[in-house]
Structures are given as structure tokens and as C-alpha cells.
């Protein structure tokens, strides 16, 4: 599959093996710029493995992951180390099991995310150590950006509270805010709606739409909550046992028999029929 002209992310023939286990097998898909692309599939389908390959936490066994910026700059993510992917290729992510800095305040969590900008402004600590004015300006700008995202995620009143003390839904939103503070072009969200109630899920949908519309950030999403996936996704990729079984618009995916079979299982006679076909 060749990359479409405006694909922000092109995954080509990606495979990830752990010893004898093939977690992801020859997977190819594209994520369009400015779209919300959802990656769905039953438990253990290899969705998070794909995420970890894209964000550099795993080194893929085979395949290519190409990310292109609006200005035409491209990055081959499988060749970059995890923190370089966030720093250079501008891919931000959240985690399935929330990974905040629990002992630091919400504000500090968001300022840590702006580390590389501030590090340069502090002259790699030497200028900052002397307390020069330029660093103070950069720090204020960082706090302002953090304030903006706290406001957007409805956490403005909790900015000085410890991240570990926030409610579950608030922690989820803070993690998204933190990822956004790195100025990403692609935001990878690993089950952002897990553990949220219906109202919080609706708020999450609004937040993600806002991020895409007003900040031009493309979103790649792993999600089990179909109310989120079907409502906001532009494009859905379905994985089962590490293999792509479907790829298309939400409406097409909803009616795809293979997807229904993967999620709900198939009738016994269909299994027999399939076995007969392969000659057992």
C-alpha cells in the first residue's frame, strides 16, 4: 500500500514478534492529516503493541512507520529512540494505565512536558542558574500554556493540587493536556475513555474534536468504548490477533461481517464450514 498524499502517518508492513509470539503481523494502514483514526479490536489484538512501535517504546521486528509534517519533513519512526520521537517527530502519547507524575502538581506535570523548549531557554541550565531574564520569560510562557490547557480540560481550579490526588477522570484529562503541551502533530491516545462515565465520555469527545479542529492535531486512538469510536472517528482500523481485518469509515466497519465475528464470535456451523473449506 502506498502512502496517500496527505497521510500524516503511514504504517507499512509492520510486524512485531516477541520470541515465538507474533503480536502484530504485516500490518499496513494510513492515518490522514487532520483526521481522528481509531484502532480497535478485541483484547490482545495487538493495538497497544502498534502504539508502542509508533512511539518508539518497542523496536519493530519489521516494517516501516513514516510520519510526515505539514512542511514536508518526514521521519522514519522505527529508526528513532522513544524520546526523540516525541522531541523531533512531535508524536505525543498517553498510556492505558495512566502515567502522570503523581507527586507533582498538575501545573508541574504540564510544565515538565515543555522540558525541551525550556531547556533551550535556560541555556541548558547554565543561563538559568544565573537567573537571567530570558529564562523567566520562557517560564512564564510555559505556565501560560499550561494554564490554557488546564482551562481547556476543566482543571483550572486544580492546577496546584497533586496529580496523584485528582479523580480518575481528571487524571485522564490531565494526561491528554500534558501530551498537548509538547506541541504534537500526532496525538496517540491509548484508551482515553476507559473508566469514564457517559457524561465524561461525551466531554472527552468534545475535547478531542476541539484539539483536532483548533490545533490541527491528528489523532490516533485506541478505544473499546464504541460510543466514542463511532461518534468521533473519521476512519477505523480493526485488528484481530495482530492482523488487520478491516479498514474504513465507521459506517462501513459497523456492518462488516468479519468485524462482527471478531467481536461477537461466530456461529458453530460457520466454524465447521470454514474448517471444511481448509480441508480438515
Amino acid at each position: 500500500m502506498s502512502a496517500a498524499p496527505d497521510a500524516i502517518l503511514a504504517v507499512e508492513r509492520l510486524s512485531m514478534r516477541f520470541g515465538g509470539l507474533v503480536a502484530v503481523d504485516d500490518l499496513s494502514f494510513n492515518a490522514q492529516r487532520g483526521h481522528i483514526t481509531a484502532l480497535i479490536g478485541p483484547n490482545g489484538a495487538g493495538k497497544t503493541t502498534v502504539f508502542n512501535c509508533i512511539t518508539g517504546f518497542y523496536k519493530p521486528s519489521a516494517g516501516m512507520i513514516r510520519l510526515s509534517h505539514r512542511d514536508g519533513q518526514t521521519f522514519l519512526l522505527e529508526r528513532l529512540i522513544d524520546f526523540r520521537i516525541a522531541q523531533w517527530a512531535k508524536v505525543a502519547r498517553t498510556f492505558q494505565n495512566i502515567r502522570l507524575f503523581p507527586g507533582m502538581t498538575a501545573l508541574e506535570n504540564l510544565v515538565v512536558a515543555q522540558h525541551n523548549v525550556l531547556m533551550a531557554a535556560s541555556g541548558f541550565s547554565f543561563v538559568g542558574l544565573l537567573g537571567l531574564k530570558s529564562y523567566g520569560t520562557a517560564e512564564r510562557a510555559a505556565v501560560d500554556k499550561a494554564r490554557y490547557w488546564l482551562d481547556r480540560t476543566g482543571l483550572l481550579g486544580r492546577g496546584d493540587d497533586l496529580a496523584g490526588g485528582l479523580a480518575y477522570g481528571e487524571q485522564r484529562r490531565l494526561e491528554i493536556a500534558r501530551a498537548m503541551c509538547t506541541d504534537p502533530v500526532l496525538l496517540c491516545l491509548d484508551e482515553p475513555a476507559a473508566g469514564l462515565n457517559a457524561r465524561e465520555s461525551a466531554e472527552l469527545n468534545d475535547l478531542l474534536r476541539f484539539i483536532r479542529r483548533d490545533h490541527g492535531v491528528s489523532i490516533l486512538l485506541i478505544e473499546h468504548d464504541m460510543s466514542v469510536v463511532m461518534e468521533i472517528s473519521d476512519h477505523i482500523v480493526v485488528l484481530d490477533y495482530g492482523v488487520k481485518i478491516a479498514d474504513g469509515s465507521p459506517a462501513a466497519i459497523r456492518d462488516d461481517p468479519k468485524v462482527i465475528a471478531a467481536y461477537l464470535g461466530v456461529e458453530d456451523e460457520e466454524v465447521e464450514q470454514a474448517e471444511a473449506e481448509v480441508g480438515r
Binding site: F83, F95, P102, G103, V112, A113, N116
Partner: peptide, 29 residues
């Protein structure tokens, strides 16, 4: 005290809290 107020000091504390999250934010641990 000064370093704690600088990005490097914040990164130290963030690393103590969660190293993987640090890497996901582009911090060279």
C-alpha cells in the same frame, strides 16, 4: 534550590516519579 526551579531539576523529579512518562514527553533521560 535553583536547579529544582530549572527544567533539569523538574526533569529529575519527574524521572523519580515515572521514567517512561518522561521519555514519552521527549525528555532525554
Amino acid at each position: 534550590i535553583r536547579m529544582r526551579a530549572l527544567p533539569v531539576g523538574r526533569a529529575w523529579e519527574a524521572m523519580r516519579e515515572d521514567e517512561i512518562a518522561c521519555r514519552s514527553l521527549g525528555i532525554n533521560t
